[in-house]
Design a protein around this nucleic acid. Structure first.
Lengths: 254, 254
DNA sequence: TTTGGCTAGTTGTCATGACATTATCAGGTC
DNA sequence: GACCTGATAATGTCATGACAACTAGCCAAA
């Protein structure tokens, strides 16, 4: 017998769906399944009930069930095989990285984030910033430089440039909230972000800010974020203490 | 007038679809649109023809067109807005990172990859390896250690552990091809990979192998890869010269 | 024993139709 | 001129139906 016995779990959940509410049905289903996987109710390697049966039992059409399952496949928690079925991926499950800021990351891991605001000024865009933000060179941008701390220990030095429309942002906003929270409260919804992750040695300035030795190894991340109209709303160059922070990425082959 | 004039481009492509072939229709459409974006035929900020019209012109149903567009949205090249339409994201487009190996990355960027094989042995799994691969501790695994070079310059030191079924892999395979190519040729299809990206200082050994100074900054990546049945097929701990390699990640908010 | 084919089960693809939700814009009213 | 209102247009959601492609397992034949 193969080592991967595959229990067909019928997912005996009654799942009271609210059909009139604003929450899509496929989302309600996918949330419920994801929760079942993360809680261990659906163990690694177990098979999911097939799409048609699941749809019948829930009173949903197959496309809706399919979409719910697809959501979780995209998260890397489920694997589909034609002719076979859908299985839970092996390996301990860990929550994936979303389009969030470091501030959100820290609150999610039950650390207390805080911010030291080093710089908040209007600055003409240099060539690189102009290209990343898609604005004219020398046009005004908001330049921010911050140190992010978790439980009063410095974790990252973050430098951002924002388009002119955000120049009114106040220092106390940035101290009390993450940059992404501030942008969201101004009606901006981030949709796409392109990141480059690398490493280099720390400068004397960075070493002092992060309270580490000179010429330590730093984890760096450059990011350009776009809102739902496709326009660049933020360009940032950040560096992290590698002993306190790392990136987690889940890749799924189509 | 706003700076983002939005030309409605009707995508005047005739797109001869092959309906009988094995290639899905939605895939043919999405490939064509992506190519149009990357080639500049659909410039940044331009609007796409709406779904129903596009479907009618191509003789396709709306779900098929929708799926084609969704593929490109997931890649971060398009942005949809309800009530508005679908637009090309601003910013220079760069190809995203797929589920590939460093070997594939290098060939895609027209560098000549080569490999120095340092270690190829059978080894009992330690606690960490056993957990990552989902096998018993002390069970046999294939242990590989390699240096990857691009144009004869060392780029990375790569250490991998594979389950027992791959113990037959020959040294010449690993020198001539990337590990993922070898696995694919053995019928393994990778589906999901979980990666952790960090940084640290180099050891004396690594410094010599990568031809860099001692205590340089290194970019590190740990990865566990799963095949289409959800079983772990590879666990690796790699480190890269940060002046020659970095990671690119595109995040898309759902 | 081995090989081959058949069958049942499951996901993959595609079409058609309908209604809901949201943003824009023009026009009328105060 | 400012504000409300409706029409218009586009994507978001969901149902139903059908066929294709792939896999595993059973069974019969060589």
């Amino acid at each position: 017998m193969s080592a991967q016995e595959e229990n067909v779990l019928p997912m005996g959940m009654f799942m009271d769906l609210q059909r009139s509410g604003p929450i899509p049905l496929y989302f309600q289903v996918s949330q419920r399944i994801e929760k079942a996987i993360l809680s261990g109710e659906l163990p690694a390697g177990s098979r999911l009930e097939n799409e048609v049966a699941l749809g019948q039992r829930l009173g949903l059409s197959r496309p809706t069930v399919r979409r719910a399952i697809q959501e979780i496949v995209d998260k890397g928690l489920l694997v589909r095989r034609r002719g076979i079925g859908t299985q839970v991926v092996h390996g301990q499950v860990t929550r994936k990285v979303e389009l969030t800021s470091l501030y959100d990351d820290l609150t999610n891991t039950h650390k207390v984030p805080s911010t030291h605001l080093l710089t908040l000024e209007t600055q003409g865009a240099d060539a690189k910033t102009a290209e990343r933000l898609g604005v004219q060179e020398d046009s005004p941008t908001l330049h921010i430089r911050r140190v992010r701390l978790a439980d009063d220990v410095p974790v990252a030095v973050m430098e951002n440039w924002l388009p002119a429309e955000f120049i009114g942002i106040e220092p106390n906003e940035l101290v009390a909230h993450g940059l992404y929270q501030v942008l969201r409260s101004r009606g901006v919804t981030m949709r796409v972000a392109r990141q480059h992750i690398g490493a280099r040695k720390s400068t004397a300035d960075e070493s002092a800010l992060l309270e580490i030795e000179k010429n330590s190894a730093l984890l760096t991340m450059d990011r350009t974020a776009f809102d739902n109209s496709g326009r660049a709303v933020e360009f940032g160059q950040h560096c992290y203490r590698p002993d306190l922070y790392s990136f987690e990425v889940t890749l799924v082959e189509k």
